[in-house]
C-alpha cells in the first residue's frame, strides 16, 4: 500500500461518505476554534474516548470478543508514554510513539493467553489480565508512583493551548478512526468478522482462528494505547485508574449506548456518554444510579443502541455492516 494510487483506491473502497464527513470535520474544528477553552478540553476528551470505545468496538462488534479489560491497554499507553519520558529520558514528542507500542506489546502478551479461550472465559481472563495490570500500576511504588500516579513530568498538552491540542487530537483521532475503518473493510477485517460470526466455519475454510483473534486483539490494544497516550498528554499525568475496571465498564457502556454491530456505535456512545456524564451530575448527585437505570432501560427496550435507533429511523450514515 505504498503506492498512493492503491492507497486512494483502498480508501474509496472503504466507501466513506465524504460528503458527510468533511463538513462534520469542519464543523468540529470551527466549534473548537470559537468556543471557550473548557469546551475544547471536553471535545478533546470526547475524541479520545471515541477512539478508545471504537477500538473496543472492533473486538466486540466485529470479532465478537467481549473484552472486560480493555482499559489495561489505555493505561499501558498512558504509562508507556509517561515512563518513556520520566525513566527513558525521551522528549515527549518522541515518547508519543512508545505509548501505543507498549499497549500493543501488552496486548500481544495478554492476548496470546486470552485467545486460547472463548466467550465468557475470554471475558473473564481479559478482566483478570486488566486487574493484574492495575494492581502492578497501583502497587509498584518505585516505578509507577503507586496510587499517587505520575504528575508534573511535562508541560500538559506539549505546551499547546487547549484549542491547539484539541485540533491536534481531533486530527489524530480522525486518522486513527479512518485506519480502523479501513481495517474493518480490509481482507483482515473480513477474517476477523468471519471468525467472530462462525468460528467453526471459518476454521473449516482454513483460517487460523486464534491467530486472527490475536491480531485483532493487538490492533485494538494499539489503538486503545493511542487513546491512553493522548489522554496522558492532555493532563500531563498518569494514574492507575486509567487501567481500572471503571474505564473498561465505561467503554463497554459507550459501545452499548451507541449501538453494537455498527462501526459508529463506539463514537456515538462516547459522545452521548461524555455529554451525560458532564451534565447529569449538575442536576442529580447520583450519576451512577442514573447511568445504571438508563442502561437497564436501553438494554430492555432498545437492544441495538442509539445507532440502531437512527438506522431504524432511516438515517443510514451510522448503519453498520451486518
Amino acid at each position: 500500500m505504498t503506492d498512493p494510487k492503491t492507497l486512494w483506491a483502498a480508501v474509496s473502497r472503504a466507501a466513506l461518505n465524504w460528503k458527510l464527513l468533511v463538513p462534520l470535520a469542519v464543523a468540529l474544528e470551527l466549534f473548537n476554534r470559537l468556543s471557550p477553552a473548557s469546551s475544547s478540553t471536553l471535545l478533546t476528551e470526547v475524541a479520545i474516548l471515541a477512539l478508545f470505545a471504537t477500538s473496543l468496538n472492533l473486538l466486540m462488534s466485529f470479532g465478537h470478543m467481549v473484552s472486560f479489560g480493555h482499559a489495561a491497554y489505555f493505561g499501558l499507553g498512558a504509562y508507556g508514554f509517561t515512563l518513556a519520558v520520566t525513566r527513558g529520558g525521551l522528549a515527549p514528542e518522541m515518547a508519543l510513539l512508545v505509548g501505543p507500542l507498549a499497549a500493543a506489546l501488552g496486548g500481544l502478551v495478554f492476548g496470546a493467553l486470552c485467545v486460547r479461550l472463548t466467550e465468557i472465559y475470554f471475558a473473564m481472563l481479559t478482566l483478570a489480565c486488566a486487574q493484574i495490570t492495575y494492581t502492578v500500576l497501583f502497587q509498584w511504588y518505585d516505578v509507577t508512583g503507586g496510587d499517587t500516579g505520575i504528575t508534573g513530568f511535562m508541560i500538559p498538552r506539549l505546551g499547546l493551548s487547549e484549542t491547539g491540542y484539541a485540533s491536534l487530537v481531533l486530527g489524530l483521532v480522525a486518522l486513527a478512526l479512518l485506519a480502523l475503518w479501513m481495517i474493518v473493510k480490509s481482507p483482515l477485517g473480513l477474517m476477523i468478522r468471519a471468525v467472530g460470526q462462525d468460528r467453526a466455519r471459518a476454521e473449516a475454510l482454513g483460517l487460523a482462528a486464534r491467530r486472527v483473534q490475536l491480531v485483532a486483539f493487538v490492533i485494538a490494544a494499539f489503538f486503545a494505547g493511542i487513546a491512553g497516550t493522548l489522554y496522558a498528554v492532555l493532563h500531563g499525568s498518569a494514574f492507575p485508574d486509567y487501567a481500572g475496571l471503571g474505564l473498561t465498564l465505561d467503554g463497554l457502556i459507550m459501545v452499548v449506548l451507541g449501538g453494537l454491530n455498527s462501526f459508529a456505535g463506539g463514537i456515538w456512545g462516547a459522545v452521548i456518554y461524555e455529554m451525560l456524564s458532564n451534565f447529569v451530575p449538575k442536576f442529580i448527585h447520583q450519576w451512577e444510579l442514573v447511568l445504571g437505570l438508563l442502561l437497564l432501560g436501553i438494554c430492555l427496550a432498545m437492544p441495538h443502541g442509539f445507532a440502531g435507533l437512527l438506522a431504524r429511523l432511516g438515517w443510514r450514515g451510522g448503519k453498520g455492516e451486518k
Binding site: 466486540m60 465498564l249 451512577e288 444510579l289 445504571g292 437497564l296 437492544p303
Partner: peptide, 29 residues
C-alpha cells in the same frame, strides 16, 4: 429485568447485570 432478555445476545444480559452494579453502588452510597 433479566427474564425479559433471555433470548437476546449474551452481551446484553451481561450489560444488564452491569447496570445493576452501578445502581446498587449508588444506592449503597
Amino acid at each position: 429485568a433479566l427474564r425479559r432478555i433471555y433470548g437476546a445476545d449474551g452481551l446484553m444480559q451481561l450489560i444488564v447485570t452491569v447496570a445493576l452494579v452501578l445502581i446498587l453502588r449508588d444506592v449503597v452510597r
